[in-house]
């Protein structure tokens, strides 16, 4: 009987702690929602690196398609419901965004190509994203965006 009570207390307390922790910090998805300004693309290129621009310019060759694609845009608007709008001067493109795993992976897709970014830093003012490159691409890229005022 004592063991049964101990087990019930154990399961309940773990669940309560977990739910309390979830309640303490709101969902990471909500932190993304809003307008963000691109401030830095830190790129350590490799032999095959070709900077393309999925957001606003199409890849020119097959080699470009195999390489890291960069969403160069002045403004990144993360909207609820998974809509991402990239704006640069007069150009605009709509993509989809989702968070995966435990909220540590950002998935961006244009419906054809899907990219994954490891969320290195997520704060009210700044987001740092590390591009997760396919194993055959030896590139490294870090994108930093800050919240637009």
């Amino acid at each position: 009987m004592k063991i049964r009570i101990a087990l019930i207390i154990f399961f309940t307390s773990i669940s309560v702690i977990a739910l309390a922790l979830i309640g303490k910090k709101y969902n990471p998805e909500n932190e993304f929602v809003g307008s963000w300004e691109e401030i830095d693309w830190n790129i350590k290129g490799a032999e095959k690196s070709v900077v393309t621009n999925l957001g606003l310019v199409q890849a020119q060759s097959a080699e470009e398609e195999d390489s890291i694609r960069f969403h160069v845009a002045k403004s990144w608007k993360f909207k609820p419901g998974g809509i991402l709008i990239l704006e640069d001067k007069n150009k605009e493109r709509q993509l989809e965004w989702r968070l995966k795993g435990r909220g540590h992976i950002l998935e961006i897709s244009d419906g054809v190509v899907t990219e994954f970014y490891d969320i290195n830093l997520l704060s009210d003012e700044k987001i740092e994203l590390n591009y997760i490159a396919p194993s055959f691409v030896k590139d490294y890229a870090r994108l930093v965006i800050k919240r637009s005022s």
């Binding site: 773990i14 669940s15 977990a18 922790l21 979830i22 910090k25 435990r102 909220g103 540590h104």
Partner: peptide, 13 residues
């Protein structure tokens, strides 16, 4: 990272 702690804890549980 409280949110992630909670999620991982729930997954393990």
């Amino acid at each position: 990272n409280y949110y992630q702690i909670a999620i991982v804890l729930l997954w393990i549980m």
